[in-house]
Every structure is written in C-alpha cells, then in structure tokens.
C-alpha cells in the first residue's frame, strides 16, 4: 500500500494561540493522592459495603447461635474457639471485598481510566493495597470484637466467660483483625492476577474454605499441607491454646503475612508488565 503524505492544511499550527499554558506548574501528585483516589473508589461502590456487612452478619450470627452451650466450664480455649467459629465462613466475604476491589475495575473497563490517571502502576497498586488493608483491618477488628462481645453474652450461665484481661484472648482478638486485613490484601492480589470476578472469587473461596476442608480428608499428608497452607497458618492466631501439631499463633500469622506480601509483589510486577 502506498502511503500518502502531504503538508498540513495550515502552514503554521496554532501553537501561539491565546490559550493559557496547561499541564505543568501545578503540584505533582504523590502517593497520598493515589490513596485518596483508591479510597474514593472503594467507598463509592456498594460491593464494598455489602461484602463487609455480610462478613459481620455471618461471623457475629454464627458466634451467637452456634456457641456450644454444653462446654465444660473450665475449657476457656474452646469457648473462644466456638464463639469465633463463624470466621471460617465470614472470612470468605472479606475475600470477596479484596477480589472485587481489583476485578470490578477490570470488569467495567474503568481500570483504563485508573491507569491513565495514575500511570505509575506500582504506586497505584501500593495505594490500593493500603486501602484494602486499612478497611479490612478496621472492619475485621470491629467484627472480631463485636462477635466476642455478642458471643459471650449469649453463653449459658455457668460457662466461664473468656476475659479480655487474659493475654491469650486479647492476642487472639487483635490478631484476628490483623488476619482479616492480610486476607483482604491476599485476595486483592488474587484478583489482580486473575482480573475476572468469577475466577478471583472461585480462587479465593477455594483457598480459604474448600481446599482446607479437602486437606482434612487426606490423612497425614493433608495435615502437613494444612499446617503450611497460608490461610490456615494465619488462623492459628485465633487459638488461645496453641495446638502442638500446627504452627504457633504469632509465627503462623507472620508466615501468612510473608505469603501475602509475596502474592502482592507478584501481582504488582505482573500488572505493571501486562497490557491493560
């Protein structure tokens, strides 16, 4: 094909038009501006609120209704464990929040306007991760403490009520909020890698809920897998009396934190290299 090339219609383009100079001169945006951007986006979609509300309803509801009323009076560890049992399901809603924060942007195509507004994708994704972490931390801590408060009130008289003055109990509750915050970021990383809501949600539910259940059916090998499975290791923080076969509570949560940081780093590098 021959290329046609001719001169411009107007010999002198209107570069000296009376329009004021644009673009430069204003303050350069920083990380905090990207965080503000991500926070405005997160709070202005309904899925943020209904996923977090679902996490609260499931966890608190199961804590109140499902607390075993016939526990031995001296088994404090199991009392807290029973109250927080709903977290194993409620955490799935936190996963949805993390996944959807990424995939809803890909699904609607708004990721393109996001990346044209903040072309430094590392900065943008760090801001996104910070917003997801903070929102999940605040919501997660509130959910865990609310579940504890409601669950203890619903206990049968005679059962020894776990006390916040017990260091192990406080560690479990504060740690539970941190676990949910990390889980939100972990799910965000999954969403960024998979870019589709259906895939991201399936992966998150499989990792947090389905696979650990499958491991329990696999005998000794399954036990080893479960011990080193990131979300299962992170959940050790919820135990007042650590089990001898699993990772200890704080190292377990630390192990999950490392896994989360690695997952996020992979997701960021991948997103930075991919076409949007």
């Amino acid at each position: 094909m021959n290329t046609v090339r001719t001169q411009y219609a107007r010999p002198e383009p209107l570069v000296d038009s009376p329009a004021p100079p644009r673009g430069d001169g204003g303050p350069s945006p920083r990380f905090a501006d990207a965080v503000a951007f991500e926070w405005i986006k997160a709070r202005s979609i309904r899925s943020t609120w209904w996923t977090l509300a679902a996490a609260a309803c499931i966890t608190i509801g199961i804590g109140v209704l499902g607390g075993d009323k016939a526990l031995p009076a001296d088994d404090t560890a199991n009392v807290l464990g029973k109250i927080l049992i709903g977290l194993s399901l409620g955490q799935v809603a936190v996963c949805l929040f993390g996944v959807l924060t990424a995939t809803s942007e890909y699904g609607t195509g708004s990721i393109r306007s996001t990346f044209t507004a903040v072309p430094d994708r590392m900065r943008l994704l760090a801001a996104k991760a910070l917003v997801v972490f903070t929102v999940s931390l605040v919501a997660g801590t509130a959910i865990v403490f609310a579940t504890f408060a409601a669950g203890t009130l619903a206990l049968n008289p005679g059962v020894e009520v776990p006390s916040l003055s017990d260091g192990a109990v406080l560690r479990a509750l504060v740690g539970g909020g941190c676990y949910l915050a990390l889980l939100g970021v972990f799910s965000l990383a999954l969403g960024l890698v998979l870019r589709a809501s259906a895939g991201g949600i399936t992966a998150a539910v499989s990792i947090t809920f389905i696979l650990p259940t499958v491991f329990q059916m696999l005998g000794q090998d399954g036990e080893t897998l479960r011990k080193w499975w990131p979300t299962e290791a992170g959940q050790q923080i919820l135990k007042v009396t650590p089990s001898s076969t699993d990772l200890a509570p704080v190292p377990g949560l630390g192990y999950f934190a490392v896994a989360t940081v690695l997952a996020l780093a992979c997701a960021m590098v991948l997103t930075n290299r991919r076409d949007a």
Binding site: S28, D33, A34, I40, A117, V118
Partner: peptide, 9 residues
C-alpha cells in the same frame, strides 16, 4: 472526584 484526587486537582 476520584480522578481529580489522583492528580491533585
């Protein structure tokens, strides 16, 4: 508003 915030507008 989000886009404006991202560029300090």
């Amino acid at each position: 508003r989000g886009l404006a915030a991202s560029n300090r507008l």
